[in-house]
Amino acid sequence: MSPASPAVGTDPTSEDASPASGQPSPSMPAKGHRSLGNVLERYGLLLLLLAVAVFFSASPVSGPAFRSSANWLTLTANQAVTFAVALALLFPLAAGFFDFSVGAVAATSSVVAAAAMSHHALPLGVAIALALLTGLTIGLFQGVLVAHLRMNPFIATLGTATLLGGAIFAYTGGLQITQGISPALTSAGSGLWAGLPAIVVVVALLALVVWFVLDQTVFGRRLFAIGSNVNAARLIGVDVARTQLLAFAASGLVGAAAGVLLLARQGAATSDNGMTMLFPALTAVLLSTIVIDVGRPSVQGTAIGVVFVAVSTSGLTLIGSPAWVSSVFTGAALLVAVAVASLGRLRKGR
């Protein structure tokens, strides 16, 4: 990423920075005062998560099981793949697009990795590389559709997802690939590293990388600029088509990584089309838009969103609620959270 700024130039602060109007230049604080309401708005979901966790820990019915470390290990390990799929969603979403293919990309990559080991007896490293390459290729394909052929991203990604689902079924015949998966992979999927589920450690590292790219690099800033105003982004020197293409490529790559983690966790490649993975990930990403920088998705917010849904679901199950309760709870939480955020914006505007 080469900066778009010209080679010539000086620091604006070194220039004669007094307004010529003769007025004293207003002394403007860099940051605003953080009021309590502000903090509540930024971290409301996190506080709610803590409240839910405390409630289920304290409840005599769910408490003992909920508090146990076994529950937390399973809970976090189970959510690792969802979190990884959600991370893949973040790149296109930063640029203002929903990518409905991330679940399908993950499913496809897991089939590719499993087939490479099972049907072609390739070593684990090669299988993972092939899976990642598959995701990257699909991402680039969609990037070309959206960035260069100017296709509506909703249609492009939904079409791709449907196509991939069909391809998976054609290849697997609807059967899981269970034979010949490298035990090194499956043991990483269920094992512990330093007392933590290995898969959680891997996803945490992946999240760190995604956070760095989105939050700290020039590329990430350009992505968000496109998401905020694509015309203005072009005029400040963003190569919009290339940046969009890269966003889909990054999404494909991370989606493929999620597929490998899925294979590791399940020990078998699913014949599912991946759509069941998409919706929990979408929920988490949408929840992230009401945390920290309200209105914009983030890695931290997504992590909070994933854990929030998982903790609530686990607690509700342990307390003995029927299975549908957690769906209703999650849906309602999403609606309430987004409604509160919209109300906050409306109130400010009026």
Binding site: P12, T13, A17, S18, M28, P29, K31, G32, Q216
Partner: peptide, 28 residues
């Protein structure tokens, strides 16, 4: 190591003040 956001914000607010932009603070 990432983006030096603190320096960027400081310089941006200074630049804005140099152009007589009136705002409560830099984050509005």
């Amino acid at each position: 190591w990432g983006a030096d956001r603190r320096a960027e914000r400081r310089d941006a607010v200074k630049a804005a003040a140099g152009f007589a932009v009136h705002a409560a603070h830099g984050e509005v």
